[in-house]
Simulated scan of single mutants.
Amino acid sequence: MPGAKLKLLPSLCFLGAAALSAPTYAQSSVQLYGLIDSYVGVVKNPGGHAAAVMQGGGMSTSFWGLKGTEDLGGGYTTFFVLESYFLSQNGNYGRFSGDSFFSRNAYVGIGMPYGSIRAGRLTTPLYISTINLNPFFNSYTFSPWIFHTFKGLGPQGVVGDSGWNNAVAYTSPTISGFSGTAIYGFGNTAGDAGAHKWGANLTYQMNALLLAANYQYINFSNTPADIGSALPSVPGLRAQETIQLAGSYNFNVMRVFLGYMNIRDDARLGETNSNTEQVGVSVPVSTHGFVLADFAYTKSTGPQSGDVHRATWAVGYDLPVSKRTDLYAAFKYDRYASQSTGLTYGVGLRHNF
């Protein structure tokens, strides 16, 4: 049935994202899990040159992880998560050269009847909402929504990474479809208590409807005092605020995604604003596979950049061949300002374990 097939792709995607949020608690256990993704294709970014590639991370960034829980009784548990990205094309750890070993997640926490608390390196609620509310999930190769959020060009995009070091987060239990997360990242620098990051997320999920609202504030990128160079096109950057509203609805014949985001950069020469809109669909084809399509548009205004536009769209086909494995093909068009058009396309294989 089309409705049943439409639910398979989100299930496959959420399997890879499940460890990004608070774990589901069991008696006492330790689990090994992960995802590996490789593709062959051609990559040309705006203003760049085309390159034939065989590399990892076409539809999802490859990673492996360990998580464990211990039941303390009375509705209380302790848990840990250690997750490491890796590059399937060469076996190196991390997303890029210089990335930390457990850059996806590295935390310990306690679960209670009234929520959970985690501490360590934590994936941000903004990232979780971004990947769950676009048809290309967490593709850093093909997803327009990901590119406009975390791979901005010029004055555009979120800084501060998708995971925060020295962070503490509280996640509420789900009540009548509502759940929330608050996260705080410490600067860990003596005499500079003002160096911090914080964010909040509110999610509503009921039947076919999923909605999420996010707010994020940062005044350093990776280490205190480094934000001034985080966006070269916004010199003297002092702080950044991000508001993101997104949602999806499963009509059975298709799943529709909508999103809006505002990024405000507070800089020495004045304020830069970037506004992004997204619309996407995931459509089942007969009894096998899904057609994916997504479009994102960003306009930035500010004293440093003037008016800068970026338009990105992508189409793809995803074919689940089992509960844990899928084949895919995708094409992405990316146009930024007056630069030459970016064109990326490829075919790949993704497997959850």
Rank of each mutant, 00 (worst) to 15 (best):
N105G: 06
Y215R: 07
Y93G: 14
Y260C: 12
L245T: 11
S11E: 11
G109L: 12
G68Y: 06
I146K: 04
S29W: 01
A17G: 06
Q205Y: 00
Y333A: 03
R104K: 12
G74A: 07
T69Y: 00
L210A: 14
A50F: 03
Y297L: 09
G94T: 09
F96Q: 02
F178E: 08
K44R: 12
S248H: 08
V285N: 04
D266L: 09
S60L: 02
V279E: 03
G41F: 02
F353K: 07
D307W: 02
S172G: 10
W313S: 11
G34Q: 10
H309K: 15
S29F: 09
G316L: 10
L32T: 08
G152E: 05
T203C: 00
P235G: 08
L210M: 11
Y140N: 14
A22I: 11
S248Q: 05
A51Y: 00
K197L: 11
K7G: 12
A119H: 06
I131S: 07
L20C: 06
N222S: 15
S100N: 08
V108D: 01
S322F: 09
M59P: 00
Q339W: 11
A225V: 10
T298Y: 03
P144G: 06
S282L: 13
Y33I: 07
V256T: 11
T287V: 12
G111E: 10
T276R: 03
W164S: 03
D334G: 09
L87D: 14
L231M: 13
G65Y: 03
G346Y: 01
F178L: 14
L66T: 05
L343Q: 13
D294Y: 01
S179P: 03
G316K: 03
G348E: 06
L237P: 01
W64D: 02
F86D: 11
M1R: 14
N165Q: 13
G163I: 09
N166I: 07
P235W: 06
G48Q: 11
D226K: 09
G57E: 04
V42D: 14
A239P: 01
G185N: 04
H49P: 02
L319S: 11
D294F: 01
S100R: 07
M112K: 03
P46V: 02
P235S: 13
V256K: 02
A213R: 01
S21Q: 10
Y25W: 08
F86K: 05
R264L: 12
G259W: 01
A296W: 01
G41M: 07
N201Y: 04
L343T: 15
H49V: 15
R268K: 09
R255G: 05
L126E: 00
G177I: 10
G98R: 00
Y317Q: 12
Y76S: 08
G57M: 10
S11M: 07
M254I: 12
S274K: 05
A195G: 05
M261E: 00
F80Q: 06
D99P: 00
Y215D: 08
S97Q: 13
K151R: 12
R121S: 06
G228M: 02
L343S: 14
